[in-house]
Each structure stands twice: as structure tokens, then as C-alpha cells.
């Protein structure tokens, strides 16, 4: 007998795998964003090396937002969302599990793609490792904060844009500490660990708080 939450996790992974798309789309969007940046900024290797971590982080942020709007909407449309209320697991945990499955299918591929895309931006080894580490620590927070936006706009037909407007301001702290930790590793004045620790703290706080906010928003969506 599989536990309800594990069943939900495996179902979401299986759906994502069958549909395809979500992981690939995010990574391809990430690739496009990173590759158009040098066209806008110019091919100066020193400049690219310096602002590379910031470009990677902004691209990852937008790519993860792009995939978020279907997080709960698909379940609303096919009626699963109503049935989640009737399960034996609390809705908050179901939300958390859905976020985990979503992160595995979108956030994790972005993180894994980052070091390869970093090479295009003249990043050294230390900087590549730092960007990847910060994305690994920070993308869960992006998914969890985004879940609040996705849950709030779940009943809106064109909620994607509104969701982005709601979520982007909330992700600014993640961006600040993610980028400063990544830049610190490639020779900044601050140490790597101070901003990295705060980044991890933001992710852990999101892990604890966001499921409650998102579940509350979903409870009101049925009215």
C-alpha cells in the first residue's frame, strides 16, 4: 500500500513524463534567454563573466515562472482539485508534494542545465559550481513562492500574467541572495557562505510557510 502522498508524487511525475514538454520547455526557454543576452550586451568576455551569474539567475527565474501556471490549473479543470479535499492527507501536504513533483520536473532540470549554459557566458569553474549550488538551493523557493501565485490565480482563465505580477516581487529576496552568493564565488568582496546561508534559509522558510498560503487560496477557489 503506497501512502497517499507518495501516490500523488508519482502520479504527477508520470503525468509530466507522458505530456513531456514541461521540463524541456523550461530548459529550452532558459537556453534561449541565456543565448540572447550576449546579443543585447555585446560579446565582451570580461563583462559577460562578471554579469553571467545574474543573467543565469534571471533566466532561471523567468523559466520557472513560465512553467508554474499549470501547477494547480490542470487539477482544477479535470476535477482532481475537488477530490484532494476528500483525501486523508491534509491539503497543505498535498500542495507541498505537488510542489516537490513540480520542482523535480522543472527546477531540477534548470539547475542541471545551468553549468552548461554558464560556459556560454565565460564563467570559470568556481563560478559554475557556485551558480549551480545557488540554483539548487534557490529554485525550491521559487517553486514554493510561485505556488502561492498559482493557487491564487487558479480559477482565472488567463491567470498566467497576473500570477507573474504577483510572484515576481516576492522572489526578489531569492534573486538578491542567489546572485550575490554566485558572484561572491567568482571573486567578490563578500564571502560565499553568508548570502548562501540566507538563500537556504529563504528556501526553508518557504517550505514551511508557502504550502499553508497556497492551500488556503485553493480552499477559497472552490467558492
Amino acid at each position: 500500500m503506497t501512502s497517499p502522498l507518495l501516490a500523488l508524487f508519482l502520479r504527477d511525475l508520470r503525468v509530466a513524463r507522458r505530456i513531456g514538454g514541461s521540463a524541456t520547455m523550461g530548459v529550452v526557454f532558459f537556453l534561449v534567454m541565456v543565448s540572447i543576452a550576449p546579443f543585447a550586451i555585446g560579446p565582451d568576455p570580461n563583462l559577460l563573466a562578471r554579469i553571467g551569474p545574474a543573467i543565469l539567475w534571471i533566466a532561471a527565474l523567468l523559466a520557472s515562472l513560465l512553467c508554474l501556471d499549470r501547477l494547480f490549473q490542470a487539477d482544477l479543470e479535470d476535477g482532481s482539485l475537488d477530490l484532494f479535499h476528500l483525501g486523508r492527507a491534509p491539503l497543505e501536504l498535498a500542495v507541498l508534494v505537488k510542489c516537490a513533483a513540480h520542482w523535480v520536473t522543472t527546477g531540477l532540470p534548470l539547475t542541471l542545465a545551468a553549468p552548461f549554459l554558464g560556459l556560454m557566458l565565460q564563467q570559470e569553474e568556481m563560478a559554475l559550481a557556485a551558480v549551480t549550488a545557488t540554483l539548487l538551493a534557490g529554485t525550491p523557493a521559487l517553486t514554493l513562492i510561485g505556488a502561492i501565485g498559482a493557487a491564487t490565480t487558479v480559477t482565472l482563465r488567463r491567470g498566467g500574467l497576473l500570477m507573474a505580477l504577483l510572484v515576481l516581487p516576492l522572489t526578489i529576496p531569492v534573486l538578491i541572495f542567489g546572485v550575490s552568493a554566485a558572484e561572491a564565488a567568482s571573486g567578490g568582496t563578500v564571502s560565499f557562505f553568508a548570502p548562501f546561508a540566507i538563500l537556504c534559509a529563504i528556501s526553508l522558510a518557504s517550505l514551511a510557510l508557502c504550502p499553508f498560503a497556497a492551500a488556503a487560496a485553493l480552499r477559497h477557489s472552490g467558492e
Partner: peptide, 24 residues
């Protein structure tokens, strides 16, 4: 409800197994 609560990419059996585990 009016909506059937089924995931289109999954098979009938997979859908039912999921609900059996989730609701059971």
C-alpha cells in the same frame, strides 16, 4: 462532480490506482 477527476495522459487503471491510494 461534472468533471471526472481523471488525468488524460494516464491509463484508466493508473487513474484508479492513484485514487485508491490517495483516498483509501
Amino acid at each position: 462532480a461534472h468533471a471526472d477527476g481523471l488525468k488524460a495522459p494516464l491509463t484508466a487503471r493508473e487513474n484508479l490506482e492513484f485514487w485508491a491510494q490517495f483516498l483509501g
